[in-house]
């Protein structure tokens, strides 16, 4: 039974990271209807910036965490300003391909640095022994990561529900012309949405980096795995992203915990999200919390 609870705990840990990573994708999609395929690369960039600041420049990890969030904030904002702003109103395939192209560019830039091909790990700043409760163990890094994730998600939800900027962002996602007519600058909201997405990506990157170690391949793979998450939750729902992230984390951990090695299967944890994605797309394309707006033939 403790095996079961162990899987539940690790599923929640993985799931909360998915939730944070998916949050950025949902923010961008919600306001500007752009599916950002370069999100994984921004996550990786955030993680590497934190690592560089902490290890090479000796900045305390808390400050480098904040600094990397600030840097990716402006990085994502400039990406929107330089590349995506010109493509407003273009066909969807152009927009998708531009973000794929951007992912490729970021790949190239990160491969040019030593971070692209080596493994790193953050210096440990928390106690290394795990907490064991009733046979279920969780490491301090995981615990703190999950707590930070939920605090951040809480902050973002507050920001969207209560603050003026957040309300204007929701207005833009609801109706662009309506938002314009009450004096909201739509391009500025797009830029802000990208910027907050960059910020959350950096946070996700740091937490993943602390839990699993820094490896570019694993970090940018998150940019693809979040798609099943956001589709499950509904592409434009923040609550959906959080719930679906945790569901997906649990499904993945249960699949690799119970299916692998049992029926001659292995690696099911990697493929399960996509199978679920296909099933959802076939039966409930708008996800759990998404708005019904899919056209049908």
């Amino acid at each position: 039974m403790s095996y079961f609870f162990q899987i539940v705990v690790s599923g929640i840990v993985v799931g909360s990271i998915y939730a944070l990573a998916a949050l950025g994708l949902v923010l961008v999609y919600k306001s500007s209807r752009v599916a950002n395929f370069a999100h994984g690369q921004i996550i990786a960039a955030g993680a590497f910036i934190t690592f560089f600041l902490t290890v090479r420049l000796g900045v305390p990890i808390f400050f480098s965490f904040l600094a990397s969030m600030l840097i990716t904030f402006f990085l994502a904002m400039s990406v929107e300003r330089i590349f995506l702003r010109r493509l407003i109103g273009e066909p969807i395939i152009s927009v998708i391909m531009v973000t794929i192209g951007l992912a490729s560019i970021f790949d190239g830039l990160i491969y040019l640095t030593p971070f692209g091909s080596e493994n790193f790990s953050f210096p440990t700043f928390l106690p290394t022994e795990s907490i064991v409760v009733g046979g279920v163990s969780i490491s301090w890094t995981q615990l703190v990561g999950v707590i930070i994730t939920f605090v951040l998600i809480g902050c973002f939800s507050w920001f969207f529900k209560k603050s003026t900027v957040g309300i204007s962002m929701r207005a833009v996602s609801d109706d662009q012309f309506g938002a314009m007519s009450v004096g909201i600058s739509v391009p500025r909201v797009f830029a802000l949405a990208w910027a907050t997405a960059g910020l959350s990506a950096a946070a996700a990157g740091c937490i993943i980096g602390n839990i699993t170690g820094l490896n570019f391949e694993t970090l940018h793979a998150f940019g693809i795995v979040v798609f099943p998450v956001v589709i499950l939750g509904g592409l434009d729902s923040i609550l959906g992203a959080v719930v679906a992230g945790i569901i997906m984390g649990l499904i993945q951990q249960f699949a690799s915990g119970y299916l692998d090695g049992n029926f001659g299967l292995n690696g099911t944890g990697d493929v399960m999200p996509y199978i679920i994605l296909l099933i959802i797309l076939l039966f409930k394309p708008h996800g759990l919390f998404g708005i019904h707006e899919i056209e049908r033939v």
């Binding site: 192209g101 190239g108 491969y111 040019l112 091909s117």
Partner: peptide, 27 residues
């Protein structure tokens, strides 16, 4: 010399640039 393999870096970089530039200036 510090970059481990320049080809693995420059290939995606040039490839991505070509995609993005074409979509922006000659869709």
């Amino acid at each position: 010399t510090y970059a481990p393999n320049v080809a693995t870096a420059l290939k995606p970089l040039s490839f991505g640039l070509v995609i993005v530039l074409f979509l922006m200036y000659e869709p």
